[in-house]
Design a protein around this nucleic acid. Structure first.
Length: 494
DNA sequence: CTGGGGAAGGGGCCC
DNA sequence: AGGGCCCCTTCCCCA
């Protein structure tokens, strides 16, 4: 944590934007707090001008809520009814529904009317989606409003605006719901947000609370990209950890372990291969070190809850473009991973991997306590976290160890990490028909030292994180000791 | 409790 | 350096 942020913590509320939008929609339906009525050929739609300004460039300009303006009264401030006869009633209703629900529900026959309305009102993402579905390019249907705002490449131009726009408490209509599957993964198009003057002019839609939050975040996590800590590059001190495996240098699980302290960076020559800088950066919210150039924005969306990538078919939203891409396979029926041994085809590579283990019958993940084998590592972990290992351990270890009646050096190693030390102590003492000594019960304060055992994280901190010689079966140090000594503690329950 | 499917998140390589 | 794509691990949920 940098000195300037001492004591500053960021507590994300990912559902906030959705809940806020949902409540606003409820208010709209019941006519509460509505300060604007849209009409179209006789139909009337009460709504909130702040929401409309948030979703529509037309209304932003009408109300003078456009960033970069002086924040004075907009021309539309006195306007309470806005006649939009140029937009069909159905299209207007659909666009309003979209504004409050992030979902566009229309009949295909009405698609063109919605496209026209979206263009007229400057709702770019809807216009783009409609064009995609209609199979039209945007070139021949360029919205004049949008064109005026985006004279050149918007994606490139607005890169810095995207940074500011990523505030965790940015109102929903300014960050996520109106963006349909932007083309860029880590820098989603934030539509029509201009680049200048945001701090000085909180969006009209933000209201008082919104402004307060924004002010708070200007000094905090909203400036994550500028203020995120660049971790100094340091030559890797353990060359053995470098990836020298496989074609294309694709990492093996061994090399996919979490990086140890510091981080690889700069340019490292490994086996003649030039290694690119990974520019590790520290997340200002969770302090986590993020490796890889350009990966911090992606990580930040895990805090903000932003899901800028929406499936145009079913409306499901994703934080990442690659996840959306995989999701789209459900709709297209594409199953790119086919089993060489049978006709089975899969959506994901790991599905195929799991499937192949069924063919081979391979169960490489063995519980060191009960020696039950699993095909999947996470199943082994789940098994170990549960208490199933405390049951009778009648299985023999794979390598023909002689079960010993002696407990291992650290008897607590026999218990899952999820079990408290005190519970484990009770269990251990119960094996010997003894009560847990009073001095171990430690009613308050930290547990007595002899009952303390490090968590996985603590092990990482203490030992530099090198927990396992075989990363597919990560084991704590005490487990390895246990195995080395080949002492199997058979719990006698009788 | 286990097996399987799926989602989320992190990291590496290439462009 | 950033973005796209891919692979991996971990977690959650359901049968």
């Amino acid at each position: 944590m940098s000195p300037g942020e001492d004591g500053l913590i960021g507590i994300p509320f990912p559902e906030h934007s959705n809940e806020l939008l949902s409540r606003l929609n409820a208010q709209r339906r019941s006519g509460l707090l509505c300060d604007l009525t849209l009409t179209s050929r006789g139909t009337r739609h009460p709504t909130h001008r702040s929401v409309m300004a948030g979703v529509s460039l037309y209304f932003r300009r009408l109300f003078g809520a456009e960033e970069g303006e002086d924040g004075g009264e907009g021309v539309g401030d006195n306007c309470s009814v806005c006649q939009l006869d140029c937009v069909s009633p159905d299209a207007l209703a659909a666009l309003l529904e979209f504004a409050y629900t992030a979902t566009l529900t229309i009949r295909s026959s009405g698609m063109r009317e919605v496209l026209k309305g979206a263009q007229l009102l400057g709702i770019q993402c809807v216009a783009d989606a409609c064009r995609d579905i209609l199979g039209e390019s945007g070139d021949d249907l360029t919205d004049p409003v949008e064109e005026a705002e985006q004279p050149t490449s918007r994606r490139k131009q607005d890169r810095c605006s995207v940074v500011r726009a990523s505030s965790p408490v940015r109102p929903a209509w300014l960050n996520s719901h109106h963006e349909m599957a932007p083309a860029s993964e880590d820098t989603p198009e934030y539509g029509v947000l201009p680049t200048q003057g945001r701090e000085g002019h909180p969006p009209a839609a933000a209201g008082q609370d919104g402004a307060t939050h924004r002010d708070g975040l200007i000094n905090g996590s909203s400036h994550w990209q500028q203020e995120s800590t660049l971790i100094p590059h340091r030559p890797k001190d353990d060359p053995s950890d470098e990836d020298e495996s496989g074609p294309k240098g694709r990492v093996t699980p061994h090399n996919n372990q979490p990086h140890r302290e510091g981080g690889r960076g700069g340019v490292t020559l490994v086996g003649g291969r030039k290694r690119k800088s990974q520019t590790p950066q520290q997340c200002p919210v969770c302090q986590k070190i993020i490796h890889g150039a350009g990966k911090l924005p992606r990580h930040m969306r895990t805090h903000t809850g932003e899901k800028p990538f929406q499936c145009p078919t079913c409306g499901v939203r994703f934080t990442r473009n690659d996840k959306l891409k995989i999701h789209m396979r459900k709709h297209t029926g594409e199953r790119p991973y086919s089993c060489p041994s049978c006709p089975a085809r899969f959506l994901h590579s790991y599905d195929l991997k799991n499937h192949l283990s069924l063919h081979s019958g391979d169960r490489p993940f063995e519980c060191p306590l009960c020696h039950k084998a699993f095909a999947r590592e996470d199943h082994l972990q789940r098994h170990r976290k549960g208490h199933s290992c405390l049951e009778l351990r009648t299985r023999r270890p794979r390598h023909g160890n002689n079960p010993a009646s002696l407990p291992p050096t650290d008897p607590f190693s026999l218990y899952p990490e999820s079990m408290s030390a005190l519970t484990a102590a009770r269990h251990l003492y119960a094996q010997e028909n003894r009560s847990v000594p009073v001095q171990l019960l430690g009613a308050e304060g930290p547990l007595p030292e002899m009952l303390w055992r490090p968590t996985g994280e603590e092990m990482m901190k203490q030992g530099g994180g090198d927990t396992s010689p075989h990363p597919s079966v990560p084991r704590k140090a005490w487990e390895e000791d246990e195995e080395e000594e080949e002492k199997v503690f058979k719990v006698e329950s009788q």
